[in-house]
């Protein structure tokens, strides 16, 4: 019995300690809890007629704060082909590169020029901006017998290429000064940004983070999620291709053969008239 009381007491004690600690930990980061974020369209459904979408991110913050809105996917590992010159003349695939801790999607929208808004240290801490992302990712090259980590100029060159590749797919996007602050009342302001959601963004969970900035420091953050999922026929076909690949392959072949014959028949009929 004594033991039970002791352990109960221990639990209360532990709980209290955790609460105090977490309050202490959160104080320097969030000075007040006014910052809110909302995505008007947080469940994007992919059907056959899906061609991207529009997501409106909005919320309230303290008056006078600058804001940075970051949208990212969970970090992935991606293997890419690397092109280089062979024999000093011909461009060919010369190997593969592994990109680690890279988001598949990375959007950044701000209320002003990024370099003027935030200190470098803060950018690195919250992975805001390409230079911060550059420091965060790891790039390794698969050589004949071993994997070599890239550093310095070489890492920079391939990171730039990666960003270029992602931007070509509309999966990376950085635009400064396009978050609009709408109205100011009672020491609060509304902010809003309309984001063209690219159809190239695969299904998954995306995180929208808003950073409230004062004196080049992040003083508040708020977060929300955007879910992208396949529905209906798109989901059925996609699941089937993955989980019942043999049947899927056979159906694809049968449909192709039937279509070939079908069109052949139509043309024969057309020809005989």
């Amino acid at each position: 019995m004594k033991k039970l009381i002791q352990s109960k007491f221990y639990f209360y004690y532990k709980g209290l300690l955790i609460t105090i600690l977490s309050i202490l930990l959160f104080i320097p980061e969030i000075s007040s809890a006014t910052l809110t974020v909302k995505a008007n369209h947080d469940h994007i459904k992919i059907n056959f007629f899906y061609h991207g979408d529009e997501v409106n991110v909005s919320g309230i913050s303290d008056e006078g704060l600058d804001l940075i809105i970051k949208i990212t996917s969970p970090e992935i590992h991606q293997v890419m082909k690397k092109k280089g010159k062979v024999a000093g003349l011909l461009w060919m695939n010369v190997g593969t590169l592994n990109f680690e801790h890279v988001p598949n999607l990375y959007f950044l929208h701000t209320t002003g020029k990024l370099d003027e808004l935030l200190e470098k240290k803060e950018m690195d801490r919250y992975i805001i901006g390409y230079p911060a992302l550059f420091k965060h990712v790891e790039i390794t090259s698969n050589e004949k017998t071993k994997t070599v980590a890239l550093t310095g100029e070489e890492k920079e060159q391939w990171f730039k290429e990666y960003v270029k590749f992602k931007e070509s797919l509309s999966l990376y996007h950085l635009s400064e000064g396009d978050v609009s602050i709408k109205k100011v009342e009672k020491g609060l302001q509304d902010y809003h940004i309309r984001i063209e959601w690219p159809y190239q963004a695969p299904p998954g969970e995306y995180t929208v983070t808003v950073y409230g900035i004062k004196n080049k420091q992040v003083v508040e953050t708020a977060e929300t999620k955007v879910f992208v999922e396949q529905v209906g026929g798109v989901k059925t076909l996609s699941d089937m291709a993955k989980n019942y690949s043999a049947i899927y392959g056979i159906i694809s072949i049968i449909v192709a053969i039937a279509a070939g014959f079908g069109v052949g028949m139509i043309f024969r009929k057309g020809g005989s008239h």
């Binding site: 293997v79 890419m80 082909k81 690397k82 092109k83 280089g84 003349l89 011909l90 461009w91 060919m92 695939n93 593969t96 590169l97 391939w158 290429e161 990666y162 270029k164 590749f165 070509s168």
Partner: peptide, 12 residues
């Protein structure tokens, strides 16, 4: 093979 490609990396 001879022109510099616009993207130096590509999907596998």
């Amino acid at each position: 093979l001879t022109l510099t490609p616009s993207l130096l990396i590509g999907q596998t």
